[in-house]
Design a protein around this nucleic acid. Structure first.
Lengths: 246, 246
DNA sequence: CGATTTTTTGATTGGTATCAAACATGGTGG
DNA sequence: CCACCATGTTTGATACCAATCAAAAAATCG
């Protein structure tokens, strides 16, 4: 938990749902450990829309937790084609794929003015040996990222355009509501093209599919403002998709 | 390194390239640490072809390193469709996605008679605090798994059937050669359908594409026996694919 | 050897990409 | 404040790749 912030209460609320909560809330820890942990989280960093938090290939020194704002990550293939591999909102972690080779495996770009907490990885290592529970917590976070990419693989490998987009909207809705935002009324921070890249579709297909969902009465689309009118229909589509269409 | 094995030398050779090498080779560690580490790796376990090492949902207690043989992992989607998410050969790690929720996120099935080393995760936690370098090594392994799935996502999201299969063969070739096997002459341990599931293709497409590669003279296919005659052509196809086809 | 499973190959269908053009949006500078 | 341009979005027509349906051939297993 970052201290000395003007809007202390708001920050605390954000932090409650953060993956790094345990690192920031020394209250739960013993007195001795508290002092040791003081230096783990470094002061937050602000980024303007479009700014890069890090780029693929840059030396890896820290992991980041989104405090406010929205990010995307992009992997660059050898031949210039690149793909969005994730969208990250407050409380979510960026940069875990950099640990492996000591340099970042993807670009991270702010999709709106944002703020992140920086966790230098060296401190992390030290803290891990001091606090076994922290080490395990961190294993969990990394494992969760593996689960996330597995789910995405399932979408990319098995699902049709409509199912992928439905899955995307439902997932976004869940994550927003978990963080206390409206589940069925939100602003898309990313372009149609970025959604397409993430889902392995072309931007025209994304646009067409959103229009179709609107015609069906399942959602309301006003540019980037999305309302889920019948979210259960989207959920349905992700679950047994071949029936819903065939 | 498992001791007291009949074919000591062969085992040692296999272990040299194993991800868990560092856990098994106490030679590199100080005397005191050696004793502590004695109990980390548990005796290996044998599985017959078709046997499950673990199933999705089962309580997670250990991570496994393939010692000999070949495995696939499968994620089950809610509606019954499932997808192969990886193939694992000797030295590679299975079960990392189970840490997150304390139960396994996928099935792991032996594709031939196999043997694994079992690493109880509790021991792992203890060992991590004793040996910081070990903890970091383990972070690296998990990060590597994230990188692997990212690469696969790129294939599933961006590539055409030919490119995916070329990428698959090249990847297999690299991993085999890293472990001292022939790079351009190997036996596929999995069926066409399993390859298809992994690559987001139907088995017919896999079969057709292999036939096409053979007609081009790039590979030789004899059932499960594959020879790469012009591996650079496959590599080429993965790198700048649109040119090679358009 | 026969039964079952896997693989190959062909014909057709269908979903998404591609190409193209109109339209809306948001930011910039006059 | 508005005109303007660059960018992003929608929608339509067409093309193409891979899925599907189908059937024969080959391999595996008991």
């Amino acid at each position: 938990m970052i201290r000395l912030h003007k809007q202390g209460e708001i920050v605390q609320k954000l932090c409650e749902k953060c993956s790094l909560h345990i690192l920031c809330m020394p209250v739960m820890l013993k007195e001795r450990e508290l002092t040791d942990l003081g230096a783990i989280i470094r002061q937050s960093r602000r980024l303007k829309k479009g700014e890069y938090l890090f780029r693929a290939g840059e030396p890896f020194t820290a992991i980041f937790a989104v405090r406010t704002g929205f990010f995307k990550t992009i992997v660059n293939s050898q031949d210039g084609r690149d793909q969005v591999t994730g969208f990250f909102m407050s409380g979510e972690l960026l940069g875990l794929d950099g640990i492996c080779n000591n340099n970042h495996g993807c670009d991270a770009v702010a999709l709106e003015d944002s703020e992140v907490c920086e966790l230098p990885f060296n401190n992390m290592e030290d803290a891990g040996s001091l606090l076994p529970s922290l080490q395990i917590h961190f294993y969990r976070l990394m494992s969760q990222e593996i689960l996330r990419t597995q789910e995405l693989m399932l979408m990319l490998g098995n699902m049709r355009a409509e199912e992928r987009l439905a899955g995307f909207l439902v997932n976004l809705s869940h994550r927003l509501s978990f963080r206390g935002f409206a589940a069925n009324d939100f602003i898309l921070r990313m372009s149609r093209e970025e959604i397409g890249s993430y889902l392995g579709l072309k931007l025209e297909t994304v646009s067409r599919t959103l229009s179709k969902f609107q015609q069906e009465g399942w959602i309301k689309v006003e540019h980037k403002h999305i309302q889920l009118l019948q979210p259960w229909m989207l959920q349905e589509m992700v679950m047994h998709c071949q029936k819903a269409v065939g």
